[in-house]
Design a protein around this nucleic acid. Sequence first.
DNA 1: CGCACTCTTGACCGCACTCAACGTTGGTGG
DNA 2: CCACCAACGTTGAGTGCGGTCAAGAGTGCG
Lengths: 236, 236
Amino acid sequence: MAQAAQTVCCGTRVICEDCDARHLAVCHRLAPEHLPQLAALAAARRVAPGKLLFEEGDLAEEVFTVTFGMLKVFKMLRDGRRRVIGFLVPGDFLGLAFGRTYVYSAEAVSPVTVCRFRREQFMSLLEVRPELELEILGRISTELAAAQDQMLLLGRKTARERLATFLLHLARRRGLHDGDILELPMSRADIADNLGLTIETVSRTFSSLRKDKVIELKPHHDVLIPRFADLEQVGG
Amino acid sequence: MAQAAQTVCCGTRVICEDCDARHLAVCHRLAPEHLPQLAALAAARRVAPGKLLFEEGDLAEEVFTVTFGMLKVFKMLRDGRRRVIGFLVPGDFLGLAFGRTYVYSAEAVSPVTVCRFRREQFMSLLEVRPELELEILGRISTELAAAQDQMLLLGRKTARERLATFLLHLARRRGLHDGDILELPMSRADIADNLGLTIETVSRTFSSLRKDKVIELKPHHDVLIPRFADLEQVGG
DNA sequence: CGCACTCTTGACCGCACTCAACGTTGGTGG
DNA sequence: CCACCAACGTTGAGTGCGGTCAAGAGTGCG
């Protein structure tokens, strides 16, 4: 992993280089002359594991970028079934609703720090700096493409393929390599609700992949990936 | 259905009122003073059933709005498995890639007419008229929300629930009511690949819904929906 | 240490997939 | 107009993957 780097960005102390790079991708559009302006709008906020950042249906008055930790984003069905849309890591954007309310809930799975903007002020910033809007457009498009890939996964892949794909995506987003350890702060239930499986099947599939030496299970929900190529093989 | 209305919009003759309203939603941002400008950029294009409008990986040099007929949008997996992302009807937007190439393929399932813009020119229009960009942002956000609902469907619902949801969505987009007939120009295979099922299961589920009097199967792939409430009941 | 919670493992079951046969439809050419 | 054919759709029988139900092991926290 990249060494920690202390950087101040739009009022938030950013402590991880990776986070840094991605979070700044937005802020850079405004830097250097607009940084003070943005800093005045932004504020850091901490969320403890299991606590909600916001809930589906809440008035969408703020938008966020994640600067530390991991969030899960999910929706509920009337009958209590749950869908975990995805997991957000530093640099990711959330809360940009175009209706008046959030369309999903966001909850911390590990201690989280976000950089918070008042939505109105953020939107008026967009008007001042149209390039920023293009940046957002690009991000949403990426998100859409990811959602479509996920649909492919849910529609056609087996439990084994789903879990392998899941692990690969997370590991790649963290820039891991052969032999590195992937931390999974979320519960089996969260993974199950993301992949459209039950916790039992997730658990069984973890065991199965371990038996086949594709992964090693370490304490504290850590997973060691000996060879990415093997995981890709399984992932389809 | 609404009576056909002959209207000229950005160089395309729009022949359906519904299409009209939705297609114009984009053009109106520019009207009236920019209409000639846009008309100069746009051109109609017809696509026969089974023919590709563009293919995943093609250089994304054009963007489109559908003005007539139905398109299917899909991706292929390496092993030949296929995912139908969705079906597009008049008023829908497609081809807005932010990379250099299209991220999916588009094929006509019925005779189709699209309104075509050169991408570069369209993008520079966005710079001149930022409101248009907001319109696009809103559309993509809607698309994203739909994709997330679809993920929920694929992850958790039974074949019966999936097909009911599918029929409901299509019927609502066409503004149908109790007793109306829904035309399904796409094949069973297309439906199967959209819902993450096999053609056999789709066929069996159609029969099952018919047996339970939730739908009636008419010639030419037409489906009569006696009571929407029943279908909603099944859809979960 | 004890309690609550999560995770794992096992046995069984059912829904959807696979394989296969048959029926239907639409298009083509005699 | 009908015969033919290929593509598409329907139906049936059998199988297997993942869900359900249940019990036990591991983990973390006070």
